[in-house]
Design a binder for these strands. Sequence first.
DNA 1: CTGAAAGCGCTTACAG
DNA 2: CTGAAAGCGCTTACAG
Lengths: 350, 350
Amino acid sequence: MAGNSEPKTAKMKDVADLAGVSIKTVSRVLNNEPHVQDKLRNKVKDAVAKLEYIPSQSARSLRGNRSYTITLLCHAADSSYSNTIQFGAVVACQRLGYQLSISLQEGLDQLSFDQLKAVFEKLIHQHRPDGIMLMAPYAGNKMIAFALQELGIDVVRIGPVDLPTEDILVEIDDYGAAIELTQHLIDLGHRRIAFVRGLENQRATDVRFAGFSMAMNAAGLTIDDRLVMPGSFDFSSGMDAGQKLLSLEDPPSAVFASNDDMAAGLVTAATMAGVPVPEGLSVVGFDDSAVATRMRPELTTIHQPLRELGEVAIEKLIESFQNERKTSARRIVLDHNFILRNTTAPLTIS
Amino acid sequence: MAGNSEPKTAKMKDVADLAGVSIKTVSRVLNNEPHVQDKLRNKVKDAVAKLEYIPSQSARSLRGNRSYTITLLCHAADSSYSNTIQFGAVVACQRLGYQLSISLQEGLDQLSFDQLKAVFEKLIHQHRPDGIMLMAPYAGNKMIAFALQELGIDVVRIGPVDLPTEDILVEIDDYGAAIELTQHLIDLGHRRIAFVRGLENQRATDVRFAGFSMAMNAAGLTIDDRLVMPGSFDFSSGMDAGQKLLSLEDPPSAVFASNDDMAAGLVTAATMAGVPVPEGLSVVGFDDSAVATRMRPELTTIHQPLRELGEVAIEKLIESFQNERKTSARRIVLDHNFILRNTTAPLTIS
DNA sequence: CTGAAAGCGCTTACAG
DNA sequence: CTGAAAGCGCTTACAG
């Protein structure tokens, strides 16, 4: 069989008959349109409840302009960061009667503008999503932003993004959070502080480094270029950075890793090199992902409300195409938290 | 705007006009139906290519019986295990022209049969998925299986499952894998081997323990009941088990943890208690998830092809409702691999 | 092997 | 404030 059994499901006509109104009135009630008497409205609602009527998504999206589907554009690599955001997005979609459709797109970074447009045109044409949700590593990509803008589809982005488009943005204050983390290390007496960057095409990498620089400068500390390491947001790049940093003639006493996975790699590298954390090296991360409480010692970091970020992104996106006026804020900043755990300690003079 | 711009997209009629055939013939070609001349078939295909025609999913699913959507029933807790399987499922869906719709369902375990049926009826009615994919912790649930069976929808399950329904099953040989792992510990000279169980409502827990028992018995070793610990497949339950095991009068020299997360917890507990791994305690896990290579020492475990499991599940499901005959295998067993890393060592006589 | 007609279940103009 | 008609873009019988 091709799927469905045949429960004699109620149709709009059945609801209309039971409520003693026209099918159009039922449609109006279902879509929360004005111009229906309260009395009729209630009759219809009762009938819907009695019949357990559920509108057919296909019919709605075929005739109307809405598909009640939002497409989440994902990079093929799955990470705890993306998965948690996606989780929040699914929750919000389910709550609001939308479907989240996941589109896996690898290597979008390497396409030309026209190729990008073609990819999105096909995607939009096929599923007709009402909106698109973007997160790292695609959230901050300008070509993607412009291609999507030309296609005229509503977009929401997650993460620190600096784009001239009018898309909705949901993020935390990465800059401020990076300052807090750096200040914490400075307050502990550290002066030679290393920084491990993330992927270079992501704005989070620059923003977090900017916060770090700001705090260092404000404290009158200079940033030693040899202590600024490249990274790619993953465990092994953190290990690499740690090994290099620790084998320096004049190693740092503290390291700011741009995310938790790299911080975990750093701690592992230090431990393997016989440098105790935090006594011999203080480490901070960013995200408060699962690894933060599973490693030993547990990681001092910034908690990002990833699930909430995903939920709010979906809510704002849906809100935006329900409100014609576009009155609501286009940029939402959620709260983060500094989480003090055990990878940081006062500088010990040796 | 409610989503779409208005690219003048080609419709079936346009393809038919360009190819000089009727719209019905186009439909036939698109759906790979027989009874079309090769010449016409090619004309249609050319026209489709030229016009970049993409059929509307809504129209198809409204008129036809298929929605080209598969619903993945997920438990609200997101884990690396589920996410990797889901990833494979998305990949396969995308390749085969289907959409994966994620349905988050918490606490399905506590519902009555009728409540379950109501939940699924609504879900099926709303999105009309062509099939449903189940994984832990719902894959092995009998009530869910029967409810879905009564609703007559095609189902695929992942993981070791023992059900009287005719659903498709995709799994690895958990039993055999557990024997390999246990035999490895026995070969290293261990005799007091502990076992940490997983969640009790999952068949994987029983099957892996059965493999462990089998290997122990075959080697003439007895299982000490005090060395069989409860667990819940997560890091902290592994830590707990480790602490209890290590504080025993006569602690084990090796532990079989039912999955990697618990194994990581065990290693952490041992390290914190001053017991070196693997010298003082050998540990094996199960899954080969991300944590296996991020912990130190790296974990000896069984590699489960999770992504492939997800892909194959989707492929077989789609295949099953395309083949009326249901000729293909209903149970697919994929290969696993024993991965020797550094958490296991020969028993040292102390 | 091919096609003209009907209809899936809704929403969109258009009347009243 | 309410309704009868038309139509979204396909597929399903039914003819030929």
